[in-house]
Design a binder for these strands. Structure first.
Lengths: 120, 120
DNA sequence: CAGATGTAGTACGACAGTCGTAGTACGACA
DNA sequence: TGTCGTACTACGACTGTCGTACTACATCTG
């Protein structure tokens, strides 16, 4: 299977994480599993990358954290959940717009069928 | 105008450079102008980024360089031209395939209209 | 003819984001 | 009791990009 290297997707880690948090607050382990399943296993984010993204985005004011129990009865180990701030939502919208633009521009290079693959 | 940040496109610099070199051998200054014009000024690659990409790709065997005069009469300052190697062409094809995949995967996150932008 | 602008780079250190490795700690299951 | 899964944290290495600065030749302008 073709997999996505972190080098090509690195610019979208924060955006992908935010897109998951836009639906509902979540935590590290769950998000990593979601990224894997949404991408059909084609992209697996490293734990260290994910947790350092949390730290960075919280510092930048895009997300905020809270500690909560996994179930309402208070059983199980507490987890650190994250949710987007208003600023984070705005940032997400910007990144979505930037994605549309990036996609268009990259395709002007990539899908250039007159490239002359065969000659030379 | 919305511009593309280097963080989001950084995974595609090498591929964009290669796509230009697939058409015909070229050199730094010319490539930077082409990237600017093809992207309608939405992405301007920094000189240092471009030249360090040349060094890296040549070291990795994806491109090879040769020095030539700007015109057949031998006038003007000599330039360092680059052309893709066979390995570089194969690498370019791989990156094109990876782009298709990345695009599809990123869109699963980005274009998620059921994201609930409004709630919460 | 001098000086500005354009062309075509090189050098170098800083910085950010990712990664590999390792370790902690709790709970569930067998 | 031990292994597996969950849920992290710490730390140093590495890579690619960037800011700044500098060189050098050519061409254009006053």
């Amino acid at each position: 299977m073709v997999e996505i290297s972190s080098d090509v997707i690195r610019g979208y880690n924060d955006t992908m994480i935010l897109s998951i948090l836009m639906k509902e607050p979540s935590y590290g382990y769950e998000i990593s599993k979601q990224i894997k399943s949404i991408s059909d296993g084609k992209y697996i984010i490293k734990e260290t990358t994910l947790y350092s993204a949390f730290t960075r985005m919280e510092k930048n004011g895009y997300i905020e954290s809270f500690v909560a129990d996994p179930d309402p009865e208070g059983n199980g180990k507490k987890r650190t959940y994250y949710r987007p701030t208003e600023q984070g939502k705005a940032y997400y919208s910007e990144k979505c717009a930037e994605w549309e633009l990036t996609k268009e521009v990259v395709e002007r290079f990539i899908n250039n069928k007159e490239n002359g693959y065969g000659d030379n």
